[in-house]
Every structure is written in C-alpha cells, then in structure tokens.
C-alpha cells in the first residue's frame, strides 16, 4: 500500500505523515531520510525533524539514491521524507541515475513499497507559484510534477496537507467528491 502526502513548505506534512504512521499501531517503523546534509541550514532541519520523531520510535535509514535496493529485517511501515530531495539526488548527484529519472524513481518506490506493509511518501507541493523559470528549472519542475502524477496513479491514498489539516484527494475520508 502506498500513501502519498503532499504539502507546501511548513505545511505540517512531515508531522502529519509521522503521526499517521504512529497511528497504524505496533508495526516496525522505518524512516528513510533522503536529504544530504550539506550545510548548517540542513543540519538544523535534520535536528528539528529528529526532535519531532524522538518519541515516535522510528529506525532512521539515511539513503540518498537507489531506494529500491533497501532491505529490512522485518516487514513494517516505511516513511520516506522527502521525495523532492530524492529526485534532486537522482538527477544531480554523481551516483544518481540522471536519465529517465521520473520513471526510475516511481519504479524504485513501488519496489520499496513491496517490502513493507505500507509506504508513506512525503513530497513538496511547489506548483502554484505562477512563475516561469529558465529551461533548466522548468525541466526539473516537469520531472517533479511527472513523478507526482505517476505516484498518484499507483498510490492508494493521496493526501494534501494544509497547515496540518489533511485533505484526501484519493482514498481515505472525502474521496467520494473526487471524480474520474
């Protein structure tokens, strides 16, 4: 089962996703951290997120690319935070796969999901800014949006988090208002 959790910066999407996982009961909880800590700002963010997870009993796995290759001792519930970092890593890091990236990431995540009872994927919603960037950035945005659309297709639930409030775009509460 795949749940996709999307929201803007500071929307409360990570906290929502963590609490959602905790709410699933006593399954082993794995946390895949995808951000490469490159400077002080990143370190601060990591500390804030670690602090948020302290009481929630996650095993943290740092993984920047190739998430489909991970294996786990016990079948549990996996939280991956955040897909936008994974995408940037796969696109721009030396060890990343920089061709056909959107397709590869979706296929990696589906493989990852098959190794757990549930995979919860957190990603950033950056598409309502109304700005036209240079070709390089637009290419990144196109790839990003395409991963979201493909993931939404295979996901059982798609949740948009607005300041901590979940809006179920697919599955869950309220899905009856969405239309084909």
């Amino acid at each position: 089962m795949i749940t996709l959790v999307l929201g803007g910066s500071g929307s409360g999407k990570s906290e929502f996703a963590e609490d959602y996982v905790v709410g699933k009961g006593s399954l082993p909880r794995y946390y895949i951290a995808t951000m490469v800590p490159m400077d002080e700002e990143c370190e601060k963010k990591v500390l804030r997120h670690r602090d948020m997870r302290k009481e929630k009993q996650f095993q943290t796995v740092e993984r920047y690319t190739h998430v489909g290759d991970l294996s786990f001792e016990e079948e549990g519930i996996i939280l991956l935070d955040c897909m936008s970092n994974l995408l940037a890593n796969e696109l721009y890091r030396k060890e990343g796969r920089n061709k056909n990236t959107a397709h590869i990431i979706v296929s990696d995540l589906v493989t990852l999901a098959s190794k757990a009872k549930e995979l919860v994927i957190v990603s950033n919603d950056v598409f309502c800014e109304g700005k036209e960037y240079d070709a390089f950035t637009m290419q990144y945005l196109d790839c990003f949006a395409s991963v979201h659309r493909e993931l939404a297709k295979v996901a059982d639930q798609v949740v948009e988090v607005v300041y901590g409030i979940p809006i179920y775009e697919k599955g869950g509460i309220g899905h009856e208002t969405t239309c084909k």
């Binding site: 939404a152 798609v158 239309c179």
Partner: peptide, 11 residues
C-alpha cells in the same frame, strides 16, 4: 469548476 491535483480532478 474543477481543481486538478496530481492528475486527480475534484469538482
């Protein structure tokens, strides 16, 4: 009026 999010349309 419809709003589309991640390919999912909602009226």
């Amino acid at each position: 009026v419809y709003r589309v999010f991640c390919g999912i349309g909602r009226r």
